[in-house]
Design a binder for these strands. Structure first.
Lengths: 196, 196
DNA sequence: CCTACCGATCGGTAGG
DNA sequence: CCTACCGATCGGTAGG
């Protein structure tokens, strides 16, 4: 009985968070009101507070769920066998996949994190910084092993991360182009630029 | 006398817009209050309305100033002589330059345009769409002339635009790396990925 | 889950 | 350029 109660609560929280991600993406965190969110969910605004403690907590929930997924995948890639270049390809394809399949949440994590409250803001930025550092280390490993051209590893990581993030602008054109062509063209462009 | 009055007004409006760009960048448009802006400028909030008509007008002013600069430069590139690849290089370097020298305004135009009111929102998006279309045409011309690999031109434009926009994340690290290295590494990475 | 409601803050105006 | 102020809206609470 207690178990069911808990499960039902967390499910409803996830329903709210899903609506919140869409709303925050479209209007931005600050411009989204709890009354709008309540309407999207189908309840009155005060009822939301039976499932969440604040508007801010919703943003935390969304941002850290996204951050965890990226971190988890990177750990997997790091621990896998294979050459560096195929690890980089795997990480690029995962980013593209996340952009296409969890668009609202990834968008919110990318654009609205600045509205996180401390200590969550610091934690989030620290996680992101650590993520970038691990990617730089991966690229440097590829350079040392002569798999990649000798270039500034940080700039390369910046370029790759930015490019895949740019799929935000993709949404409008989703129907006009095949996903596989998108993914392969992008991977090819990004890898050919750094391959030896 | 009338001339001086006009000039003084427009100057003060530009001072306000400059402070607004910084504020909107740091806190976002919706989270920035006119009282904060007034404090940054050094007056009381109602005094701002002697120089601007609304908070929204400030956002328009910033966004369209940026859009105009990009459009103007692209026209120049299109009308210049030379091979396509050097036109693309010129456009990449101009974007990098804008990111580094008009960071606040470009950031706001990139992130806060969604808060523009109609009909300005429609106008802005239409300008941006037109800009992208002209870039796609340029890349396609390069492909037809066999200067570039045969690939989907839109994905290439998307990748390049996103990469240079990614310099937003650069600011934090400005002091740690030489600007010329940044620019050259990025141009090299992006061009080598599409060169034949 | 709801109705009723509160204190804070917002963009902007009146009037000088 | 200022002081004084307004109506609207916000996130969130009380109480049932």
């Amino acid at each position: 009985m207690a178990k069911i109660h808990t499960r039902k609560n967390s499910t409803q929280k996830e329903v709210i968070a899903k609506s919140a991600a869409l709303l925050f993406k479209v209007k931005g965190f600050k411009a989204s009101s709890m009354r709008e969110l309540a309407e999207a969910v189908g309840v009155e605004a005060p009822s939301l507070y039976n499932h969440i403690s604040s508007k801010s907590e919703l943003l935390q929930f969304i941002c850290f769920k996204v951050a965890d997924k990226f971190t988890t995948h990177l750990s997997m890639v790091e621990n896998s066998s294979g050459i560096v270049i195929s690890k980089i390809e795997s990480f690029i394809r995962f980013h593209i996949c996340m952009m296409l399949e969890n668009f609202d949440e990834v968008f919110v994590a990318n654009h609205e994190w600045k509205h996180l409250q401390e200590p969550f803001l610091h934690d989030f930025l620290s996680q992101r910084h650590n993520y970038e550092k691990r990617l730089v280390a991966l690229v440097e490993k590829g350079i040392n092993k002569k798999e990649l051209k000798k270039q500034n590893a940080y700039v390369i990581v910046l370029t790759i991360l930015s490019s895949v993030r740019g799929l935000e602008f993709w949404e409008r054109h989703k129907k006009n182009i095949n996903r596989q062509i998108l993914e392969d063209t992008m991977v090819d462009h990004l890898l050919n630029g750094i391959l030896k």
